[in-house]
Amino acid sequence: MPEVNISGPAGRIEARYHHEKTPNAPVALILHPHPQFGGTMNNQVVYHLYYAFQRRGFSVLRFNFRGVGRSEGLFDNGPGELADAATALDWLQTYNPDASTCWIAGVSFGAWIAMQLLMRRPEIEGFISVAPPANLYDFTFLAPCPSSGLMINGANDRVVPTESVRTLVEKLKTQKGIVIDHAVVEEANHFFEGRMDALMESVDEYLDKRLGAAPEAKKA
């Protein structure tokens, strides 16, 4: 899991990257929670998502938004972070020009940024959106959502209530040809403290459905 530094619009972007040597390996980009509330690329949900894709043969990149860790710049409340994510995806694709597919995943604030990037990059074929803050940010730009994916939240999340996510999902389900799955992790809060295994069980189940089982799951 080598550290990489990417030249971003606000300066250096600190990142961690796993390169899959298999020809045409797919790629995935993981975005972390809100920078002003302790969100970093080392967030436990981000970390587990990173390895979920790695186990399935993806080249995977996670990074710190501007102003977080050793990433340069200042928090920009959305536009700058979207520019960072676009730059990170450009970097990932430059090193994997023949990638068979492209996925994106985000956690909370990172899920909002991820979905905006999804709208701008038609090559993104799937997404995992963990605790998407549908009650805090405007998601109406998803009109229509161009790719199928999973939205998942905790049943005891006081930051992002289940009803707000369910309402967003129901709106997106009306779009032709796109399937948005919604899962709720029982007894989980916004950070999935003590419920990480349950979260990843749902994520793995979805990825297995879309991509096939991870190698270790096939051996079990």
Rank of each mutant, 00 (worst) to 15 (best):
I104C: 00
L92M: 00
G80F: 10
R121M: 07
L82F: 09
T94R: 15
F65T: 14
P79L: 02
S71V: 14
D90G: 02
N64E: 01
L92Y: 00
A111I: 02
L89K: 11
G110Q: 04
E125T: 14
T140V: 11
F65G: 13
F141A: 00
A83E: 14
G69K: 12
A86V: 12
A88F: 03
V107Q: 09
A99W: 04
G67S: 09
W91Y: 15
L74G: 07
V68S: 05
N96D: 03
N96Q: 08
L136E: 02
S108M: 01
W103N: 13
A83F: 10
I128H: 01
R70F: 12
T94W: 08
G78L: 07
V107Y: 11
I124S: 06
F141T: 02
P132D: 00
D84K: 09
G106V: 05
L136R: 01
L61P: 06
A143T: 15
E125I: 10
R55F: 09
E123K: 15
G80L: 10
D84N: 09
Q116I: 02
E123P: 10
F141C: 01
T94C: 11
L82P: 03
P122V: 07
A114G: 12
R55P: 07
N96H: 13
A88S: 08
A143C: 08
A134R: 08
R120T: 14
D138Q: 00
N64Q: 05
F109I: 11
I128P: 00
P144G: 02
I104V: 14
G126K: 14
S129D: 01
I124L: 13
R56M: 05
W103H: 15
G110I: 01
S71P: 12
P122D: 03
T140I: 09
F127R: 00
L61N: 05
T87A: 14
R56D: 04
Q54E: 15
L118T: 03
G80E: 08
G106D: 05
A134P: 05
P133L: 07
L89V: 11
R55I: 07
I124Y: 08
V107S: 06
R70M: 13
L136K: 00
E123T: 15
F127L: 05
P97H: 06
R62N: 12
P132A: 05
L89R: 11
L82W: 08
D76I: 03
F127N: 01
I128N: 01
S100R: 15
A114Q: 01
L118V: 10
E81C: 02
E125H: 09
T87W: 11
G67K: 12
A85F: 11
E123L: 15
F58T: 13
E72F: 12
P132Q: 03
Q116Y: 06
F109K: 08
I113C: 02
M115N: 12
G78I: 08
R55M: 13
W103D: 07
N135C: 09
R55V: 11
Y137Q: 13
P122T: 06
W112G: 01
N135P: 04
A114T: 01
G78M: 07
R70C: 13
S108N: 02
G126Y: 08
G57F: 10
A88L: 03
W112Q: 01
N135Y: 04
V130A: 01
R56V: 09
G110R: 01
D90W: 04
F63S: 04
A85R: 14
R121T: 10
A134K: 06
A83H: 12
F141G: 00
A134M: 11
M115P: 07
R66A: 05
